[in-house]
């Protein structure tokens, strides 16, 4: 599904990713862990197509698409979804309107009929119930005045509605209370299936008890320095990154 080869990327002249290789087969969930500043968010932005990030070497294919050649909105409608580490506020833009516009953009791309406001509300409310979000969050402007945890849940609501093929979750667990962590994990797990892959960026092994990954990778200084099964996360939790970084250096 996703194949990243020898990816080098920089921002404002600063090299962040240094030859990153990663393959996520369809249906698998991979976790990325790594110290602050190692390039995790950078990777997610490069994959989602944020401008300002210069890819100096390497390639990324998504199915049979050359991901790096596509605009961010083309990637989105092709099924890539990024749950932001810091979701962005859109003053005055109603959450329902935003979500429905996004959903209809994706549906149009898939050749499906657009859905009207009433159908949309039905769909959205059902998902919000599962995420324990109050209905009035649909009326409020996107992320404005939302608490940290509410913003993350709003990202999950978007993901659930857009049902992507590849979800990139950048520290979606940070700032969540224990119950919310469970709800978010349930949402991800509900999408699990042969046509869904995810890259879960996290600092905490705890999340991976709920979303059990197929593989765990350690990112350090812009490269994957170690990969393993779910047990690698436990190892890291116990011993930190020091040993791995030393071994990789």
């Amino acid at each position: 599904m996703l194949k990243i080869e020898n990816l080098h990327a920089s921002i404002d002249g600063k090299q962040i990713l240094n030859g990153l290789n990663l393959t996520i087969p369809a249906g698998e969930i991979h976790a990325i862990m790594g110290p602050n500043g190692s390039g995790k968010s950078t990777l997610s932005y490069v994959l989602a197509g944020r401008e300002g990030y210069e890819v100096t070497e390497g390639s990324v294919t998504f199915g049979d698409l050359d991901l790096l050649a596509m605009e961010p909105e083309e990637r989105a409608v092709a099924g890539v979804f990024l749950a932001f580490q810091a979701p962005v506020e859109l003053p005055g833009v109603g959450n329902a309107n935003f979500l429905r516009t996004a959903l209809n953009a994706v549906r149009r791309a898939k050749g499906e009929a657009e859905i009207d406001a009433i159908q949309f509300l039905k769909l959205a409310r059902a998902r919000m119930k599962v995420l324990n979000m109050p209905d009035d969050m649909l009326k409020r402007p996107v992320n404005v005045g939302f608490s940290g945890g509410e913003k993350k849940r709003n990202e999950m609501l978007q993901m659930a509605l857009l049902s992507p093929k590849l979800a990139l979750l950048d520290e979606t667990d940070s700032g969540l209370d224990i119950d919310a962590l469970k709800l978010v994990s349930d949402t991800v797990n509900s999408l699990r299936g042969p046509a869904f892959s995810a890259l879960v960026i996290t600092h905490y092994q705890r999340l991976l008890n709920h979303i059990v990954p197929d593989r765990v990778h350690v990112l350090s200084a812009g490269r994957i320095v170690k990969s393993g099964g779910p047990e690698l996360a436990q190892e890291l939790e116990a011993s930190g990154y020091g040993a791995i970084q030393a071994a990789a250096a």
């Binding site: 989602a48 605009e71 961010p72 909105e73 989105a76 962005v88 506020e89 516009t101 994706v106 978007q158």
Partner: peptide, 13 residues
């Protein structure tokens, strides 16, 4: 820029 990117990453032109 982050507002534009946020919208575009959800499929809006």
């Amino acid at each position: 820029e982050d507002q534009l990117f946020y919208c575009r990453s959800r499929g809006l032109s």
